[in-house]
Design a protein around this nucleic acid. Structure first.
Lengths: 207, 207
DNA sequence: CTCAGCAAGTTTGCATACAACCCGCCCGTC
DNA sequence: GACGGGCGGGTTGTATGCAAACTTGCTGAG
């Protein structure tokens, strides 16, 4: 059996990212310990790690809450993503093997076929994660992970207009095509457009 | 008295950043607990947080070591800094008040006067930190903190040639001048040059 | 009626005890 | 003599108990 702390971390991460636990919800240690059938110690450990990832906010003697982001912070996060994620895609392109490209195509296709919004969030996270991992830079991956978490949690595909959703799904397909062509510039440009499109529906333009 | 875990975190962070504990050193929980006169619990908490900051590496059942960075990772870290820190400086310029500018001048001047290398590391960290904080973006500050930590730990001013050191110190002064002039473009450019200069002495060029 | 002060209850923070796991060494076997 | 298995020491991972801090609701004075 795997370490308890890690399992707790994963469980909470999934629940937060999938939206099962809403932003701002209070996370009592004892309550979580009972619910997950472990003691408070690994729960504390897990909360500490998630706080490091930026998924929960931890204030001394006042416990943990699921992180919340102001509109201003979301804007700043997109600014960061725009500086890092297109670069990551560019680095990833020459490193992607054909089987990975196939996987990416499958993910992009699955997102188009898919109808469940919950599943869409997960597929989307895996799609972006594959590019980030393929970039092959641990520091870059670490910096982006914290930053994209926020976007994932806050991402409400229900807010997407049909047009915006259509664009987003096509961006995924186009990005894989660019990668398959070995054209880093192209892929990078598509990722930029992808992020601007997402930002437009989430916070409505640059201001 | 302040919370024990926080004090332990701060102590270890200082010791690692100042180089008092070398890169790769094993950090036994029991040993640290005795040395800092606390139990293992807050020590574990501290190690967990420092791992999140990227200062220590934590492997399951095998304990903690002070983080080490390969030359490849250092290269990637500089790539990240080059994308984020000049941008941070640009954002900071219009937000810096005159008393903060005075402080920055004092730091830059102190670095010139200073002869102790240990003190230089601390002054340099505070100088860069002020710009990052002034940028006013928590997500940006978080991303940069993890990334600059590595550079600070690995920074060996003893490796600087007199010329490189002279350039570095002058960059600081010039950056404050640019900020005082309210010229974000100028300040950003100086920071770029500052980072390239540092990279050249630390890993020797882009490759 | 409002607000300051306080007291009970709940929650976090720390210490200690126990269990699980990893590493190194020894011994036995091939 | 070399290699594989296992046994012991030591370290990390988890559970539990207790002390300190915060929150909340009440009470009484203004």
């Amino acid at each position: 059996m795997r370490p308890a702390a890690e399992q707790v971390t994963q469980s909470l991460r999934d629940e937060i990212m999938s939206g099962a636990i809403a932003s701002g919800t209070r996370l009592g240690e004892a309550e979580l310990a009972v619910r997950l059938s472990v003691s408070r110690t690994p729960v504390r450990e897990a909360l500490s790690r998630l706080a490091a990832e930026g998924l929960v906010e931890l204030t001394p003697h006042r416990g943990a809450r699921v992180a919340t982001w102001s509109e201003e912070q979301l804007r700043e996060i997109f600014e960061l993503r725009l500086r890092l994620e297109p670069y990551a895609v560019r680095q990833a392109v020459p490193r992607l093997h054909s089987d990975q490209l196939d996987q990416l195509d499958e993910l992009a296709e699955a997102m188009i076929q898919n109808r469940s919004l919950d599943r869409l969030v997960d597929l989307n996270r895996r799609f972006h994660g594959m590019f980030i991992d393929a970039a092959g830079s641990l520091p870059l991956a670490g910096a982006l992970k914290a930053v994209t978490h926020a976007a994932v949690v806050h991402q409400n595909f229900a807010d997407y207009t049909p047009d915006a959703m259509h664009r987003s799904l096509n961006h995924h397909v186009e990005m894989v095509a660019a990668a398959r062509a070995g054209d880093g510039d192209w892929a990078e440009a598509v990722m930029r457009a992808h992020l601007y499109n997402a930002r437009a529906t989430m916070i409505g333009g640059p201001l």
